[in-house]
Design a protein around this nucleic acid. Structure first.
Length: 860
RNA sequence: GCGAGAGUGGCGGAACUGGCAGACGCGCUGGACUUAGGAUCCAGUGGGGCAACCUGUAGGGGUUCAAAUCCCCUCUCUCGCACCA
């Protein structure tokens, strides 16, 4: 019976059967668990190829681990709060809730259509009050512990989104979401005190926490987080202000340059600066306007001086726009000779400089002709008693001196700032705070949670958050005094939602959200898969939240994600028409634009994006080739952590591969299921059928064992799915090569190879594997079968090809039996006629043998 | 500027601790079957040469019996950070 591979038919059939059976449901039991987690998507409307790749990777891992006997938790949900929903409301008049739920419904269908093995019973949507109630609960707990606080500060303001952004959300001075230029604005904001954990967050990155190292994280991500937290050791030095009792503390990592300090700079917001300019606020404000702008340095002399505690030198005090209030003490000592920024500032305002560090080798630095600052370590000069010391030693000695003198202390500073979570937006978690004229800031009592986002609001797109106008929402009685009060109208940054969703998944939908037993069974996630774009944002916040959850007594775990796999981007070639700009592939015919007929330019391969029109629609892809092909190609084209170049031709290649398996099985069904297909010997799963007694392992059986070995090893070793798939392709080539009809004697070998092949294929292409599993007469669910084992003995070749080199060049290849000693193979190599020939007239200097498979003869 | 990573056929990519460079797939070439092939199957495919052989992993140098792999220099690309004192 001939049957053609119709992926749609096969896949829908099994998806229908699986949906009723709930076979991917997990619950704590005695087995070892494996928590396989992929970053949940924002329900933007449709999934894109990046999702397909991300979830295909996760699904193979989950299915593989399941077959290896783990109790796999593999959940999925929706990062459902966020701006696009609100923008859609403004533009199209759809309510964000409606828009979001519609998108979720559609995207869920798409994920199901991909055949992903999720436990849908644990699905969460962060916009669900039952979910965000816990955002509020965490907020209250943090408020109680002083980890959530309110303060006025300069914030990153995106004028287009009309909201505040966290530092992590500003990319190159622009909004991470809409790319408009971010400006500084002063606002009252809620902050989460992530800095309370800065030391610990950093220590774990260095592997300094016992048992909870992040050894399974890419080095690159660890480094990015390390730099983000930015620890630096230094000295805080107090400079007394001349003619007053004030002191200005500054932070420096270069105490060795202290004798070279020529002036002091204050941040515009520095309290001392405000004091100095109490009478002339205008001048200060002018500088403030340029605060944080990097284009140009601006300064303003305060008219005051401080005294350098180390040598009594009188130093002028400036206010400078480039000095950050948020870092260190908000004031710096400026050493123009040894800091490029100070150098530039000094040039600008005609300030002097003084060289106090000399490179070790060179004779000296000409003071008057410095072209730029000398920032390296060196030897101190003109530094009183410290002259002649090397920088490193000098830093220690000067620090000791300053501390002894009572003028300062050694401190450690971090670049990391507290996390500003207030957003002037509607579609997010309401911050559970009430402002009372009498009682001040009052947290919403726990029993009143959740503070539900009112649905009945107006979306105008103007004048900030719609909540500001929602009278019923705003006006409340104060929980303290019962008097009139109003609610906080800001909502939380959506990164709060995603900072703990993986903990929520540990308990089923109808179980309590935070259940200690569930958390301790499933956490931490054994494998997390997602894009690198979250290397600092989401991953750092989550590490912070996990520690908060730990300190609330739910678990002893600090690190939420044991292993992290950051998959590369999905890219595709771009095409441009000189007249019409970016083109879809369908707009090109014979290298010409279908609209104007001009020759198109094939551009570089770039990340798929709608604006560049180099996208592939998963729906279309699945319609044409099926989910199994879509999954398989995503995994075959490149190793997971690398960027993947999409290629229609490549997809076809993978499709052909599946088709070949399918037709082979159906074309040979009788042989595969007939009496001759009974495997002789005792083929326990892990054992090797050696063939009929007395015979050697038949080649196909050996190839099968080799393939199982390779696929297993490739998956275990860093998830190299691309090479695992290549190995399976080789096996299929071997199977079909042995196919000619009539060779009934080989039936049992084919049967054996096909069975194992389907098991190997099951995590990658679950539908096809199941279909053919059934076809060859298996009644079971292939997903519930065990991963096949292999026998090293059966995998080993009996004959090996011995490579013989003379002076490092291959001169002969001879077949020899497996397992010869080095002496044996050397002898064989030397007696080979072709080798003798090349060696005539030469003296053999040395002979090397490598692992019984290569001989190198050194001869002159 | 600082930090990290990567450069291998026409293309995507293989090559575990130094040990046959190019697995697997795409593309290409030839053939078979066909009314036809953008279907399928078979064979070939780094470059040069009729051949033995030579040559080849961004470029240059080094270590080694042996280097894509280790070391040094140069170039190119990608990513992250960028007044953090």
């Amino acid at each position: 019976m001939k049957r053609r591979y119709q992926p749609g038919e096969v896949e829908l059939k099994w998806q229908a059967l699986w949906s009723g059976k709930d076979i991917y449901r997990s619950a704590p039991d005695a087995r070892p668990k494996f928590y396989c987690l992929e970053m949940f998507p924002y329900p933007s409307g449709k999934i894109h190829m990046g999702h397909v790749r991300n979830y295909a990777i996760g699904d193979v891992i989950a299915r593989y681990k399941r077959m290896r006997g783990f109790n796999v938790l593999h959940p999925m949900g929706w990062d459902a709060f966020g701006l696009p929903a609100e923008n859609a409301a403004i533009k199209e008049g759809v309510h964000p809730a409606r828009w979001t739920h519609d998108n979720i419904a559609y995207m869920k269908k798409q994920l199901i259509r991909l055949g992903l093995s999720y436990d849908w019973g644990r699905e969460v949507a962060t916009c669900d009050p039952a979910y965000y109630r816990w955002n509020q609960w965490f907020f209250l707990k943090m408020f109680e512990k002083g980890l959530a606080y309110r303060k006025a500060s300069f914030v990153n303001w995106c004028p287009s989104c009309a909201t505040v952004l966290a530092n992590e959300q500003v990319i190159d001075g622009s909004c991470w979401r809409c790319e408009s230029v971010v400006v500084q604005k002063e606002l009252e904001q809620w902050f989460l005190r992530i800095t309370a954990y800065e030391e610990e967050l950093l220590a774990a990155l260095d592997g300094q926490m016992d048992g909870q190292k992040l050894s399974g994280w890419p080095e690159k991500v660890l480094l990015m987080q390390k730099n983000w937290i930015g620890r630096s050791e230094g000295l805080e030095i107090a400079f007394p202000v001349e003619g007053s009792h004030d002191e200005i503390p500054v932070f420096t990592t270069r105490a060795d340059t202290l004798f070279g300090a020529k002036f002091i700079c204050l941040a515009p917001k520095h309290p001392v600066a405000e004091k100095f300019f109490a009478a002339d606020r205008g001048a200060l404000e002018k500088i403030s306007e340029h605060y944080g702008k990097m284009e140009e340095k601006q300064g303003l002399f305060t008219g005051h001086y401080v005294i350098n505690p180390v040598n009594g030198e009188r130093l002028p005090v400036y206010v400078a726009n480039f000095v950050l209030m948020e870092y260190g003490t908000g004031a710096i000592m400026s050493v123009p000779a040894h800091d490029q920024r100070d150098f530039e500032f000094a040039q600008l305002y005609g300030l002097p400089l003084k060289v106090v560090i000399r490179p070790e080798a060179a004779s000296g630095l000409p003071t008057d002709s410095l072209l730029r600052a000398f920032e390296d370590d060196g030897v101190l000069v003109d530094s009183g008693p410290f002259s002649g010391l090397a920088s490193e030693e000098a830093r220690r000695r000067i620090a000791e001196y300053i501390e002894a003198k009572g003028s300062g202390r050694r401190v450690i500073n971090y670049r990391l700032r507290d996390w500003g979570v207030s957003r002037q937006r509607y579609w997010g978690t309401p911050i559970p705070i009430i402002y009372c004229e009498r009682c001040g800031i009052v947290p919403v009592p726990e029993k009143d949670l959740p503070v539900v986002l009112p649905e009945d609001v107006k979306f105008t797109g103007k004048g900030g958050s719609p909540l500001v106008l929602a009278e019923d929402f705003i006006n409340v009685d104060c929980p303290g005094c019962g008097g009139r009060a109003r609610r906080e109208t800001d909502t939380m940054d959506t990164f709060v939602d995603s900072s703990w969703y993986y903990v929520r998944y540990c308990s089923g939908g109808d179980e309590p959200a935070l259940d200690k037993a569930n958390i301790s069974y499933y956490m931490p996630a054994d494998q997390y898969v997602g894009g690198v774009e979250h290397a600092v944002l989401h991953l750092l916040y989550s590490r912070f939240f996990m520690r908060v959850i730990r300190d609330l007594g739910f678990t002893s775990i600090s690190e939420p994600f044991q292993r992290l796999l950051t998959q590369g981007m999905v890219c595709m070639e771009t095409i441009r028409c000189p007249e019409h700009g970016w083109l879809y592939p369908s707009e090109v015919e014979n290298e010409r634009c279908t609209r104007c007929g001009r020759t198109v330019e094939r551009g570089r391969t770039e990340k798929m994006s709608k604006s560049k029109r180099n996208t592939v629609d998963p729906d279309q892809l699945i319609k044409t080739y099926g989910a199994d092909t879509a999954r398989l190609f995503s995994l075959f084209a490149a190793p997971p952590e690398r960027d993947l170049e999409w290629s229609e031709k490549g997809v076809e290649g993978v499709y052909r591969f599946l088709q070949r398996i399918f037709t082979f099985v159906y074309d040979n069904l009788e042989m595969l299921t007939g009496p001759g297909a009974a495997v002789p010997a005792a083929p326990v799963i892990a054992a090797a059928p050696q063939g009929p007694p007395g015979e050697k392992t038949p080649p196909l059986i050996r190839k099968t064992h080799q393939t199982i070995m390779r696929v297993t090893r490739d998956i275990e070793r860093e998830y190299h799915f691309n090479t695992a798939i290549a190995a399976m392709m080789e096996l299929v080539n071997a199977i079909t090569a042995l196919a000619p009809e009539g060779r009934e004697g080989d039936a049992w070998q084919l049967r054996f190879a096909v069975e194992k092949m389907l098991l190997l294929l099951a995590p990658f292409c679950p539908h096809l594997a199941q279909e053919l599993w059934e076809a060859i007469g298996m009644a079971s669910d292939i997903q519930l079968e065990s991963w096949p084992g292999y026998a090293e003995d059966a995998a080993r070749e009996e004959q090996i090809e011995l490579v013989v080199q003379v002076n490092g060049k291959v001169r002969a290849k001879i077949m020899v039996p497996q397992g010869l000693t080095d002496e044996d193979i050397k002898a064989r190599a030397l007696s080979e006629p072709r080798i003798k020939e090349t060696l005539t007239g030469k003296d053999i200097k040395n002979v090397f043998a490598v692992k019984g498979k290569l001989v190198n003869i050194v001869a002159r």
